[in-house]
Design a protein around this nucleic acid. Structure first.
Lengths: 347, 347
DNA sequence: TTTTTTTGTGTGTTCGAGCACATTTTATCT
DNA sequence: AGATAAAATGTGCTCGAACACACAAAAAAA
């Protein structure tokens, strides 16, 4: 138990050489049945864990991993991802991994394609990317596949076999969480789901949240609530929202499906004397301010930092310690209010 | 950048031997100023990260770490800790650490003292423990200090210099989160904080939560709410609670400071036709059942698994990779409702 | 000037697993 | 039986950092 067995120990115990033990362990064949049995008998008796340290000493390759994500300058939502990547570098950089971050403009598909082409030319061992543009991502991932470059995705799920691994949230369930929170806040009246459509198309992801949101109230089947739905464009944002609110005097709660929740909060705070419950997404500075003020009641945390951190860490550990990469890793859907924000803002 | 520098590389670049480089790196002295400068010049130029793998190969010591926690058979709250410990074993066991779990009876201080005495006789390199009994824990930790055994604590914070490291929740803030949740659920009326006193004394920890709870409503300073406080003993639990509820017809919300929330739920569900909002602690099976049924509105997750996992992992990495152990690590205060429970139950 | 001490430098071995290669043993064929 | 092929087994080197030890050069003492 206290002893740390080595291949040599096993060889001595079995009365064979370490070469033979090695062949047994790796099923390399060229072992007589008698020797095989002798070694296996010992292996059954003791708990042999090959020393990971020695195992990797020989392999002095530097693995190269690229991370591709939207430029945080264009959308601050991605800001924490950078810090997640840096955490991995500081934790695992000494094991011989080279991590490069590549950014693309989330408003332009071309930027996404260009960045991928650039990465593919440099031929890294693996790529962790945000497949923001559905169609383009599919094509890009096939190219990676053909080049023998491993691909993991995070934040946005792509239903495709090319996507070997995904780290992120279950958006359907996330929508249900939002619904449940509104039910906690509002006893009866109109409840609206609001899509703030951003410049880039991530309609698929907003739809998933909507499905979950609606499914919750369907399951609830209560006469107290009346569901509404509304889309907001960046252009006529303010007037459109004001009109919507004016048209629905019984509006008691709003669920915003994107991180632009603060834009809605700005209006609600100004416009109405009577309280409308507001649930939205992501810990942007503006959102946090409204959360603390009380305009936003709950925020759902999508863990951008954690997503990048875990996705990258899994890739690194795959190369260094030969760990398996799970096909999908769904992160918990964190509910944030004004009181647990300080402790959650870190990641 | 792509090159992974070794000590040998640096030696060649500086025109000295690897022994000299080693002496410079470890400040072992016995290096002439000329040689020191030559080596440092190279070190400034390149980004040298000593290979952690090779570094530990030589050090083939098996570190022994004991984990001491209450027996999950006596209180299921601790059940997930075991799985957290096992995760560390499977993740880091191959690096040469021996982890032993020792259980004590949370209803008996003697059991705690006995278990510690047993651990101290076996002289491990470090101990991770739950300092459930304040006074006894202080004494015990001094003994560990004297024996040169590193101690980390989790779940319960002990205000003492002997506690080098703590992993757990900020209980004061946790009480504030509970208060905020009740405020979200209830618009006006009586709101009660309920202590279900368990057999063992953890009064200190319940008090912290209470302070936070009260501080929130003090800060709010709203005439809509009226705070109540009540203690429940295991013996006359049911009658006492029923009486309390009967005495306060305007009771609209209850905050239970322990994992025994389900006991309160049982009564609330039976007794009252009109809804009383209920916020409590921990993802016990019974609590989860009431959460899904709607009797419990929110549960605060104390992350028992994560606490044990992180506490142990930090100790292991301290020995294996010489990482610093933080003096305290406060885990996020997770809010759980019926919809995000499935994804959070895992840890 | 010679001997002793101090200080600086380089060399060689170790750790455990992996794998190439050498060597021994066993089986097959003339 | 002897030659040869095939299978089984053992040996020895590698990886990078750490450290003991040997040895050289310079400084101090005789």
């Amino acid at each position: 138990m206290l002893k740390k067995y080595t291949i040599r120990d096993i060889a001595n115990l079995a009365g064979v050489s370490k070469g033979t033990v090695d062949r047994v362990l790796h099923h390399r064949g060229k072992v007589s049945e008698t020797a095989l049995k002798k070694v296996n008998d010992i292996l059954d008796k003791i708990d042999f864990k090959p020393n990971l340290i020695a195992k990797n000493l020989k392999n002095n390759k530097v693995y190269r991993i690229c991370v591709l994500l939207p430029d945080p300058k264009k959308d601050v939502y991605w800001e924490p991802c950078i810090s997640g990547i840096n955490t991995v570098i500081s934790e695992l950089g000494a094991f011989g991994v080279n991590i490069e971050t590549v950014l693309f403009n989330p408003t332009q598909t071309k930027s996404f394609l260009d960045a991928n082409a650039q990465i593919q030319r440099s031929m890294p061992d693996a790529v962790l990317l945000v497949p923001l543009f559905f169609k383009e991502a599919l094509i890009v991932m096939e190219t990676y596949e053909a080049l023998g470059i491993k691909v993991s995705t995070f934040n946005n799920r792509i239903a495709s076999e090319a996507a070997k691994s995904f780290i992120g949230q279950d958006l359907f369930q996330s929508g249900r969480v939002g619904a449940k929170l509104l039910q906690s806040l509002v006893n009866e009246g109109d409840i609206a789901i609001l899509h703030v459509s951003e410049k880039y198309k991530n309609a698929v992801f907003m739809q998933e949240k909507e499905k979950g949101f609606i499914s919750f109230f369907n399951d609830l089947d209560s006469p107290n609530y009346n569901l509404l739905k509304h889309k907001l464009k960046d252009l006529d944002f303010e007037t459109s929202l004001k009109n919507f609110i004016a048209e629905h005097p019984h509006l008691k709660g709003i669920f915003v499906t994107t991180s632009k929740t603060h834009q809605v909060a700005t209006i609600i705070q100004k416009l109405t004397p009577k309280k409308i419950a507001l649930v939205g997404y992501d810990l942007l500075t503006e959102n946090i301010a409204y959360l603390k003020k009380g305009t936003i009641d709950f925020l759902i945390h999508q863990h951008p930092k954690q997503q990048a951190y875990l996705g990258l860490k899994l890739l690194v550990e795959h190369f260094i310690f030969e760990k398996e990469i799970p096909t999908q890793l769904l992160l918990p859907i964190d509910i944030i209010n004004s009181e647990n924000i300080t402790l959650s803002a870190r990641d």
